[in-house]
Write a protein that binds this DNA or RNA. Structure first.
Lengths: 248, 248
DNA sequence: CGTCAGTTTGACTGGAATCAAAACCTGTGG
DNA sequence: CCACAGGTTTTGATTCCAGTCAAACTGACG
């Protein structure tokens, strides 16, 4: 992947949320950045920190983690390529949750100052805002998932979300490389590893998913989303028309 | 409460997130609105709707509700006076969760067009954005609460959050009128009513809370937050310095 | 070939759900 | 002023989902 391609991925996420002027696009595409490769389970931001640089996720999967004094971990959000894990931290100045990678990741680091410059464009600020709101919807859907579904559906629902967000759901393709461990799925769903494992087995036996080495495939998408109570509306994959300021 | 006092409450929430110019303040304070009183458990917005007016909560407690096909409800967010329950819906154009009142509420309705006008002020947009981000942090904290804490701590933690957000925690005052039912607490914590009831009893017997009729008091704030693992940092009650755009 | 991380299995335990019924309020109308 | 109805809260008994603990298995890798 070339340097500019990484930024284009990021730009794509923004444009999914609000139309950008050519000037705004250029402001994004001309950001300078450093690339860093990090391994799995690597901490990016710790609670209380106020990082002076901003990270974009170019490859891999990262997560926001909450912790209990007893030591158990709750993953509260997942980040996929194109996402901006540290966006809330930037605007609220100090982190209360930690960010860490779940798989090997490629990160782009942008200076906070440069990024804040781009916010001078109202359309960019609007896109960021709306992007944050979509993540808010994801968090609410996760609350429903964690709070009210039985374990197998939690796993199923999460798999569906990941598939859609990775862009693995188009036409007849429903498979994606999954670097995540079952422990990480358990942490995201609020269940134990053992139970996560049994849930995966249940999904396999039900013919809903298939595991081929490191790849996971959703065998029957229609049945899977019906069974997992998954409705991708909350991901707002298609940009709303007539919603923004620029549309009027 | 006078008409202007209602808007001032709302303005206060915004100013907690970003400093506003006098011009921006006036833009907010001069919004025209209708007042509506509604009873408890009254639906405000249904999934799929795109309301053409914007609601501000002036009195009472409202909630965002997720539902499972089996009929169980998960409250994913709570709204207290000064909050803007429908803010995400406005910017994303269609709701995926329903909004409803939990107690009797007083609502202010503002036309979407008028509200969008105020967003022309970049500081206002920034304040809204940051307000959304604080709610995002709340949602993440709720995920930890729902996913990883035993029932009594869930209830305790939620009580602490409500106390702080209602402004009931200042000096030695830790009590507030609670119109919410135990069923609603259960729905917010992802547990059953029966279990919620037993958790309340446990909190009372432990001397952590006291119920006096419709008022609830946190008997020992220090012990309560320690025991409930509550750290109000995620509510960002004090406005961050040097975080915004306007600060530079 | 041992090591280590992750997955799988089994046995056991415990927290929370469910069901059902009783007690308690609070507002309503006779 | 009391009786009644409806919604809440409380209690008890029972079931079951999911956690815990511990051990075996697998596969990648040095």
């Amino acid at each position: 992947m070339t340097r500019s391609a990484s930024l284009a991925l990021f730009l794509g996420q923004l444009e999914m949320r609000a139309p950008l002027s050519e000037e705004a696009r250029q402001a994004i595409l001309s950001l300078s950045f450093d690339i860093e490769d990090v391994g799995r389970e690597h901490a990016l931001v710790q609670p209380g920190e106020s990082p002076q640089r901003f990270c974009l996720l170019a490859e891999g999967i990262a997560a926001r983690c909450g912790r209990t004094p007893e030591g158990s971990r709750q993953i509260t959000a997942l980040y996929v390529p194109g996402d901006m894990p540290a966006l809330p931290t930037m605007m609220l100045s100090s982190a209360v949750f930690s960010l860490c990678t779940l798989t090997k990741c490629k990160l782009l680091w942008v200076s906070l100052r440069d990024l804040r410059q781009t916010l001078k464009h109202p359309e960019i600020m609007e896109a960021f805002w709306r992007h944050s709101l979509v993540h808010l919807n994801m968090a609410w859907e996760w609350e429903v998932n964690i709070g009210r579904r039985p374990a197998e559906k939690k796993i199923g629902h999460l798999l569906c979300e990941i598939a859609v967000r990775l862009g693995a759901v188009n036409g007849s393709r429903f498979s994606f490389p999954l670097g995540m461990t079952q422990q990480q799925f358990a942490d995201a769903c609020g269940i134990s590893v053992v139970h996560a494992n049994r849930s995966f087995q249940a999904l396999r036996h039900a013919g809903l998913i298939e595991a081929h080495g490191d790849w996971i495939a959703i065998a029957d998408w229609t049945r899977m989303i019906e069974w997992s109570e998954f409705d991708e509306a909350y991901l707002y994959r298609s940009r709303p028309v007539s919603a923004g300021l620029a549309h009027r």
